[in-house]
Simulated scan of single mutants.
Amino acid sequence: MTVDESVATAAASGANATQRFATDKRVVADTPPERVSMLAREVLSAVHATIRDHQVTYDEYNALKSWLIQVGQDGEWPLFLDVWVEHVVEEVASESRDGSKGTIEGPYYVPEAPELGSEAWLPTRDGEQGTPLLFEGQVRSVDGTPLSGATLEIWHADADGFYSQFAPGIPEWNLRGTVTADADGRFHIHTMKPAPYQIPTDGACGKLISAAGWHPWRPAHLHLKVGAQGCQQITTQLYFPGDPHNDDDVASAVKPELVLDPQDIDGGQQVTYDFVLDREATS
């Protein structure tokens, strides 16, 4: 069973991503005015410098205004920011954290996925397309202690490159779940290998990509949020070797430490990847 790509539009994905952000994210509203002023002024100064350095014309300025309006109308601000900005925010946020590497969350996370235990089969449709994948490993702290009861939220695209709850025709929790590690911090997740995909290109972000001569591809990846009591949660993505866009991911999210080493097994592939979590800072 596959999703008809012609009905999985940028407008639909953008609207869903915007709605999910409004529903799921708590926006911190108590940032001191002096910091808001400093950040806003520096961003605007960078824009002003670009205009001066490159002698931006009124036609180019009006094209930018039109495009910014279209980004909002398409509901693509979560997509735009998560693809082209978030990787730097993640870099700054994690620079002092030890343990496993993280990377961007992206626009397609949904909280409260079904709880599945330590030996987990992610929900799938009858006849779900793709290569069966067994993903297993252990969650430990930086001192090597296995983290019993660690939680792993996992979600990923299907073999057509679509995410449940963001494209039509896919069951609500397809290829999404919350896994709880066993007493030794170990987990075993049965799923289907995801496919590379293009970010939506029929909306404003696609117009930018086309105008700039860029490509819209993300390499195949698994998304995870991994946490345990007393430890800092990490958000990450894991990639597969040989993908042509590991080196030029449109979202700039691939790190060498996040590339898996899959092994062929009867009927599919198996990967082992351990997570090492840093302890929470103590005051």
Rank of each mutant, 00 (worst) to 15 (best):
C231T: 15
C231G: 03
Q232V: 15
Q232W: 02
Q232K: 14
Q232A: 10
Q232C: 11
Q233C: 01
Q233P: 13
Q233R: 15
Q233L: 14
Q233A: 15
I234G: 09
T235K: 13
T236K: 05
T236W: 00
T236Q: 01
Q237T: 12
Q237A: 12
Q237L: 01
Q237G: 02
Q237M: 11
L238K: 05
L238S: 06
L238W: 07
L238F: 01
L238M: 06
Y239E: 10
Y239A: 00
Y239P: 09
F240K: 00
F240Y: 13
F240N: 00
P241G: 03
G242P: 10
G242V: 07
D243R: 05
D243G: 12
D243I: 12
D243Q: 01
D243Y: 09
P244V: 05
P244Q: 11
P244E: 05
P244W: 05
P244I: 06
H245W: 10
H245Y: 14
H245A: 07
H245S: 10
N246K: 11
N246F: 06
N246Q: 05
N246I: 11
N246H: 09
N246M: 11
N246Y: 07
N246E: 08
D247P: 04
D247Y: 02
D248S: 13
D248E: 12
D248I: 11
D248G: 04
D248F: 02
D248C: 11
D249F: 07
D249V: 04
D249A: 06
D249G: 03
D249N: 11
V250D: 08
V250F: 06
A251M: 09
A251D: 01
A251R: 02
A251G: 04
A251V: 03
S252Q: 13
S252H: 14
S252I: 11
S252V: 13
S252F: 02
S252K: 13
S252R: 14
A253S: 15
A253K: 08
V254I: 13
V254R: 12
K255R: 14
K255C: 10
P256I: 08
P256V: 01
P256H: 11
P256D: 05
E257I: 12
E257T: 05
L258T: 03
L258P: 05
L258Q: 04
V259P: 02
V259C: 06
V259M: 11
V259A: 04
V259F: 04
V259Y: 09
L260H: 06
L260V: 10
L260M: 00
L260R: 12
D261Y: 10
D261T: 15
P262T: 07
P262Y: 07
P262D: 01
Q263W: 08
Q263M: 02
Q263C: 08
D264L: 13
D264K: 14
D264C: 00
D264F: 00
D264T: 15
D264E: 14
I265T: 12
I265Q: 08
I265Y: 10
D266C: 00
D266E: 13
D266S: 13
G267W: 03
G267V: 06
G267Q: 07
G268I: 13
G268Q: 03
G268P: 03
Q269R: 11
Q269M: 11
Q269A: 10
Q270R: 15
Q270K: 15
Q270E: 09
Q270T: 13
V271N: 02
V271L: 07
V271M: 05
T272P: 07
T272M: 02
T272L: 07
T272V: 15
T272C: 06
Y273C: 02
